[in-house]
């Protein structure tokens, strides 16, 4: 049986990197006696896949991991047991059975919602939202994207699905996944660049609010798929 788990990651847990979160979940599932399925072979490991790594320093209300279980367990029991065994900063929010033909979380993601705030002492001396709106009026928003190997200029405009909020709390829905992966830092940096400013690497406090897949051309939250187990 395929199961999708939604969880929040916050507080000091934001300093725990993605690989360590995976290890944390492996141990959490064992502590909580969740009947997790294992691969066969000489070194069996848990059948588990995470939707999308969260960067160090970023908080989230919507992280997803898909697992497979060998026998049914009610959502309520599973959530209760896992939260009893959790550390402060990780909270299980839902535990739902996926339809057998559902895409795995990693393959299906298309967009994510973010809330962005400025860390104390790093707020810009210009009206951020106004400049973001002005920038979005342009036909393209070219941004220099650096990877380890290369630097390429990418137009991030098609990756900005929507934005809103105010200078205290900026909301963005950005494209992610294999097609076009836009992070909130990239958008903020483009706004700063439009003011001839450089975005400090510590300026932003980011919280992921939701991850979406696309169903019939509608962005659908990853936890809207599947249902509770009784």
């Amino acid at each position: 049986m395929k199961v999708r788990i939604k969880f929040a990651k916050e507080g000091t847990m934001k300093f725990i990197g993605h690989l360590d979160v995976m290890r944390y979940f492996q141990k959490l599932l064992r502590r909580s006696d969740i009947p997790i399925a294992y691969t066969t072979g000489m070194s069996p490991h848990q059948v588990m896949s995470f939707a999308m790594p969260l960067g160090i320093g970023v908080e989230s209300d919507a992280e997803y991991v898909d697992i497979e279980i060998t026998e049914p367990i009610s959502s309520e029991t599973a959530i209760g047991r896992m939260n009893d065994n959790n550390v402060e900063g990780i909270r299980i929010l839902s535990f739902k059975e996926l339809p057998e033909d559902a895409d795995n979380a990693m393959a299906s993601i298309r967009a994510a919602d973010y809330e962005v705030r400025f860390r104390q002492g790093y707020a810009p001396d210009f009206p951020f939202m106004k400049r973001l709106e002005a920038l979005y009026e342009k036909d393209t928003i070219p941004v220099l994207k650096k990877t380890k190997k290369s630097e390429t200029v990418v137009d991030i405009k098609p990756g900005i699905y929507s934005f809103g909020g105010n200078d205290e709390c900026i909301k963005m829905c950005l494209s992610c996944g294999s097609m076009l992966n836009i992070k909130p830092e990239l958008v903020a940096a483009a706004v700063f660049a439009s003011e001839d400013r450089e975005l400090n690497e510590f300026a932003l406090l980011i919280r992921r609010k939701e991850i979406y897949t696309m169903i019939n051309n509608v962005l659908t939250g990853l936890d809207e798929i599947g249902g509770s187990i009784q």
Partner: peptide, 22 residues
């Protein structure tokens, strides 16, 4: 945390210093 977030985000493996383990 005893260390500021700026420091924690600068150093290698910040989880060495934040506690809160199971």
């Amino acid at each position: 945390t005893a260390l500021s977030e700026e420091i924690l985000l600068t150093i290698e493996k910040p989880a060495r210093y934040t506690g809160n383990e199971v």
